[in-house]
Amino acid sequence: MGFGMFQTVADIAFVMTFLGVAAHWVLVPTRKPRNVVQGAVHVFSLLLIEQRTSLLGALKKLAYLLSLVCFVVLAITGFWPLLVRGEHISGYLMMIHATFAPIFALCLAVIAVTWAGENRFTAEDCPWVRRLLRRATRLQVPAEEKPCACAVVGYKATFWLLLFLALPLILSIVISMFPLLGTDWQHHTAAIHRWTGLAFAVIAILHTYLAIRLRMTREV
């Protein structure tokens, strides 16, 4: 798919994502509604390392927040020239992008190691999956009649998706730096980087939204 197609799809994807998040925020209010000031203070507190956490906790938080900052920088530097100026990334934007990229990759690796455990799917996450399995396979899968914690499932799913997409996102650009691939494959790897970058950005926005939302309702 060509450059024009990517621009169109990316525009639609970002608009849909932000509209979806806004609609969800309005239509499905948090269980413990706060007023605007309280909510803003709470979200802002996410940017600060909690003093009560251990050194590992601080590292986890630092990696998470740093990756968030890197993500914002990478998304702006990566998508701005493509979607706004209609040209490939170059010049200072390229340099900023390439500077933040390895930091982001490192943060993702730290997050993967330190956050993977608590983002494992558990039996309680999706009761409806168990019920479906029991009906479909006739296995004696225990299934409780609890309501589904969709936000938690979404949060975990987006976490794993991000880790999964990070692999082609990183490798597509690193491999192209070695004298391994010819011109056609250079185009392919650039396309892979673009498309996985788009998917990654959309999922990262959803993940961040869910993280904030769960944090506000103290579910995570």
Binding site: A105, L106, A109, V113, A116, I170, I173
Partner: peptide, 21 residues
Amino acid sequence: PWFKVVAIGSAALLAVVLLLY
């Protein structure tokens, strides 16, 4: 070169975590 090392190392770690879980 540092970029390459960091990126490849990070990707390897991510792959190991994904594989492990």
